[in-house]
Simulated scan of single mutants.
Amino acid sequence: MATKSDNRLIAEKRTEFGKGAARRIRRDHKIPAVLYGHGTDPQHLTLPGHDTMLALKNPNAILTLVIDGDEQLALAKDVQRDAIKPVIDHVDLVIVKKGEKVTVDVAVHLEGEAGPETNVVLENNTLSIESDPMSIPESIVVSIEGLAAGSQILAKDVTLPAGSTLIADEDLLVVNVTAQVTAEELEAELESAEAEAGIEKDEPEAAEDGDAAESTEE
């Protein structure tokens, strides 16, 4: 069974391949997978469906695969999910060795509130970092508390968890804080855009004299 502490999965070796075999595996509520890396030949595996889905709720979870009684650490590099159903179609796994570092994309989580009358735009919702596989952070917390309009946070400004190293471009824009647009400014921008596009607004039609007179008589 998969647990939050070790994400232990019993994996079976596959001997059948192709779309038909993959469909049969999924009908049995299991997931086809391939394990590769460190110069070894790819291993085609079958993983338990429910336990694997639980383990992969954290996209950078380190899995302990039990294959023919032997344990192997692995990291999911590509998870193919069904476009409609909440199921996993296939998983690509890469072998992980203790003591080695791995490169992963970790979600950015904003904390706090920016200054008044500002808009906060998360320009990049993940950061690429290098980390020990046994201590990959679930998220990277970035504080926006009190930031004024015009403030920007670049990748190099982000404080990473201990043991992690930034792989992304140092000048990558992560957070952009802008001033809120007033209704008048928005209307002016809309009118300017319409004018550039050659769109003319229809003027409201004035009431005809006859209609006005008729209304007065009533």
Rank of each mutant, 00 (worst) to 15 (best):
V79L: 06
L147Q: 02
Q72D: 06
T126W: 00
V87S: 14
H50R: 14
S131P: 00
G112T: 01
A155H: 03
V104T: 02
H90W: 12
D89H: 08
L147G: 02
N125S: 14
M53A: 12
P42T: 04
L65I: 10
K98S: 11
N125A: 12
E111S: 05
A114Q: 03
L56C: 06
I88K: 00
T46W: 02
E71D: 14
A76Y: 00
P116M: 08
V141D: 01
K98C: 01
P86D: 02
A74N: 00
P48R: 04
K101T: 15
G115K: 00
I153L: 02
L93K: 05
H90G: 02
I88L: 12
A74W: 06
L122Q: 05
A83K: 11
G49M: 10
R81E: 14
H109M: 03
N119Y: 10
K97Y: 13
V142N: 02
L147S: 03
P116C: 08
A55F: 12
G69A: 13
T40A: 14
P42H: 07
V66H: 04
A149H: 07
D82C: 08
D41F: 11
S139T: 03
A114D: 05
A155M: 02
E123Y: 05
A155Y: 09
M53V: 09
D82V: 05
L45D: 05
I84M: 12
T118R: 05
K85D: 09
G99D: 11
E130T: 14
G99H: 08
V120N: 09
H50D: 12
T64E: 15
D51I: 09
A155Q: 06
L47P: 05
L75A: 07
V104N: 06
P48H: 07
P133G: 11
E100K: 00
D70L: 10
A155N: 01
T46S: 14
N119P: 01
N124W: 03
L147D: 06
I62Q: 06
L54N: 03
V120M: 01
G115N: 10
S135F: 01
I144C: 02
I84L: 15
K101F: 15
G146H: 07
L110H: 07
V96E: 04
D132Q: 13
Q80C: 03
V94M: 12
V108A: 06
S139A: 09
V104A: 00
K156L: 12
V87T: 15
L93V: 09
L65N: 02
V106Q: 01
V104K: 04
H90F: 10
L75N: 00
